[in-house]
Nucleic acid binder design. Structure first.
Lengths: 342, 342
DNA sequence: TTGTAGGCGTTATCAT
DNA sequence: ATGATAACGCCTACAA
């Protein structure tokens, strides 16, 4: 147990175990064609010597960097990103992969070049692409061209053989709308998300379906375009509230926009939820901490990120890999920003 | 301009430039003893062939990984972290360094072992240590023992030869307190930050100094311990507001806690700032978006992170390096959560 | 100022 | 099932 002066190499292990370095390599890399007894012997030496394969040598010899890249949009809400990082990291680390982050500021006219450079410089073997990056056709096209596998986390139509992780945005939006309908709201405003995000269309679709199911008329007047940011939410709310017959509830496609709606409502002296019910999407860090706490939808982002990274690594390692059959389940979180119509 | 089938190596460049690989190496690494003409010639070939040194080979041969690690506390407010990442990344990338992130959940009894493993596995050459990690003695001790340089971003007393980045927390807290005094507040509550953060003591000191300067009595009654999170801020506010003679203003040591104070105040039907003025620290993403928008202090985190990474890399590269003489300047941001006493 | 030889610690190839 | 040996692409010494 004396601390080794110099780090053990594969040769040290080979000598200690009485085998060749190739056998050690086989064991360390879980390759076949090693007798169980030999394998055990080698493993014992590995432990004793605290052998850790030299990543640089590994890459140089084997052409594999074991680097996974995670590209994300900079301006996003962070609790989402934090969950994403943690989920991906939790899988990459024990699997012997390095996770490299690459923030991007969108829109970026040179996005393709930026990603290409990153992939090359960092020798990225595979990408995790959270929304909205997985939604950008030029990005997936580039990665396909570079033959770099990726796992997109977004509700898109994956090409065959591509990894895609998604959750049931549409069903959640449906439930949220139904909740409001059940509370007696008949004029329900909707603020759409950024058109480049696949989730935006899904959430809108859920809203429309719920209206339809309950026999409420769809009115384009009550729908405004937003861009997932606070300001666009506030602006959209202002226009909805300026209507001759304003909605009694507003459903925003994410919490940032919902926060903007609350802000606008308060600025007009409206009581939330007394005068206006408000709901959002994402359950960000602040959703429960603004006043009133926000009714929203929580996605299992950590699990989704873990799954994305896991499937991606499986593909890189040559194991089996497939997009999961069922979408992940979202959860409606009911708080005080929504209430029954008086 | 035909896309190379296979990546160019140092040999290709050498051949193309009509020199030896060692000369190419010298040029690429900015080493001396190369004639300008030769240098230009090589540089031209490098561009033509789009030569990019193979990082793995470089590390294997040269014993340098060019990896910088950034350890951070997981539970933190993210806009802070996001700025931190972006600042550090902006410096590391063009300098040819890879930035690796390592979230940690505090308190962590095995923190030393976790960091050691990370440093070893990822072959980290130097660390950026934002608060509160730079404040933990066991962490700096470990890094000193491992002879891994680090740049701490926190108001601590750096050992000689160590890099330390800080801003004038104390002066900012002083200003904020003075602002409240100037608005006529005489009973000003203070919620301390987490005791493990160096900034907590500084901010508290600034508060006390301002009271002193303006001849206001210091009262321990009006000071509560918080832990930088929303809940502790809310709890502290509850106790302050339960006092027989509650404060007319509360200064929280960060915005998360200030948000908790606002939440508590609203829950009690208090008008902010009419009945209670509230100020925080950090200017997080939500500070301007809660109601009312929060008076707070903004730190130049991006610049601080850039400086930290830059000095660290300078040290790793063997250039000169010194902790900057003057602390970075914070900026008081006055919004609607504070107002003159009626 | 420039070049040559050797080594870094793996993985891959091909025997045995 | 196991092993010898040659890459891999660069850097460090040491020559010239």
């Amino acid at each position: 147990m004396t601390p080794e002066r110099t780090k053990a190499t594969i040769f040290d292990v080979a000598r200690s175990a009485g085998v060749s370095i190739k056998t050690v390599s086989r064991v360390v890399n879980n390759e076949p064609n090693v007798r169980q007894r030999t394998r055990d012997k080698v493993l014992r030496s590995v432990q004793e010597l605290r052998y850790l394969p030299n990543a640089a040598a590994r890459e140089l010899g084997g052409k594999r960097s074991r680097v996974v890249g995670l590209i994300y949009e900079n301006a996003q809400e962070f609790s989402y990103l934090n969950d994403l990082f943690n989920g991906a990291l939790r899988i990459c680390e024990p699997a012997g992969y390095t996770l490299l982050l690459r923030p991007l500021t969108l829109p970026d006219p040179e996005i393709v070049e930026h990603i290409r450079q990153f992939a090359l410089n960092a020798r990225v073997e595979g990408f995790v692409l959270p929304a909205p990056l997985g939604d950008l056709p030029e990005v997936s096209a580039l990665l396909r061209e570079m033959k770099i596998p990726f796992a997109a986390i977004t509700p898109r139509e994956p090409a065959p053989d591509e990894i895609n992780i998604l959750c049931n945005d549409e069903a959640a939006s449906f439930s949220l709308t139904e909740l409001l309908v059940g509370q007696g709201h008949r004029a329900i405003g909707f603020i759409k998300g950024h058109p480049d995000h696949g989730a935006s269309a899904k959430r809108f679709a859920g809203y429309r379906q719920a209206l339809k199911k309950h026999g409420l008329p769809y009115s384009a007047r009550l729908v405004r375009q937003g861009y997932f940011d606070f300001d666009s939410g506030q602006a959209a709310a202002a226009r909805l509230l300026d209507l001759p017959r304003p909605p009694s509830a507003i459903l925003a496609s994410n919490d940032d926009m919902a926060a903007g709606v609350i802000f606008e409502a308060r600025g007009r002296g409206l009581n939330v939820p007394g005068d206006l019910s408000i709901a959002g999407f994402d359950d960000t860090r602040f959703s429960s901490r603004i006043w009133p706490p926000l009714t929203t939808v929580r996605q299992p982002i950590i699990k989704m990120a873990e799954t994305a990274a896991g499937l991606l690594i499986g593909k890189l390692d040559g194991s089996a890999t497939a997009t999961p059959e069922a979408p992940f389940e979202c959860e409606v979180v009911i708080r005080e920003s929504t209430a029954s119509l008086a």
